[in-house]
């Protein structure tokens, strides 16, 4: 009778695909790192002991946010959708300073949407102030 020979079992761990796994992990981490980029607005906070800047009224755009989140631009009522169109008018272009006065109970979302509209229209000097309830 012919006895079959057993195949010899290799005791080595195959490491040929190690570099492939490592490169796949690198690609994964590179993609995940991109996700940590957030969107937002950077604000420069005023210095603690700095006196307030005096600016003439002709150079200021005043926007008020009322308790019910309605907007008033230089005394005239505007809707959030119309705000961008108003700001692109020539009368506003030569005004450099924006003063946003929000009611204490108004929503933060409204203030952010307003800041976004001003930033989109090229206004960079924006001040935020809370109106007393």
């Amino acid at each position: 009778m012919k006895i079959k020979r057993f195949a010899q079992i290799s005791s080595e761990i195959p490491v040929a695909s190690m570099s492939d796994i490592a490169f796949l992990l690198i690609v994964f981490f590179m993609i995940v790192a991109v996700f940590s980029i957030e969107a937002g607005f950077s604000l420069k906070l005023p210095a603690k002991d700095k006196p307030p800047l005096e600016v003439s009224d002709q150079r200021i755009i005043e926007l008020r946010i009322s308790r019910d989140n309605s907007l008033t631009l230089n005394g005239k009522s505007v809707s959030p959708e119309e705000l961008g169109a108003h700001l692109s008018q020539p009368g506003f272009r030569n005004r450099q300073f924006v003063s946003i006065k929000a009611h204490a109970k108004s929503r933060y979302k409204t203030a952010v949407l307003v800041i976004e509209q001003f930033k989109r229209n090229g206004f960079e000097k924006i001040s935020l102030k809370k109106l007393k309830p």
Partner: peptide, 27 residues
């Protein structure tokens, strides 16, 4: 997003009082 503006103002005032120079509003 639904926070009252007075809460944001309070945070910004605290940051200013402790001489922080920059803050980013995340959206």
């Amino acid at each position: 997003a639904e926070c009252a503006f007075e809460k944001i103002d309070e945070v910004l005032a605290a940051l200013k009082a402790q001489a922080f120079e920059k803050a980013t509003l995340i959206c």
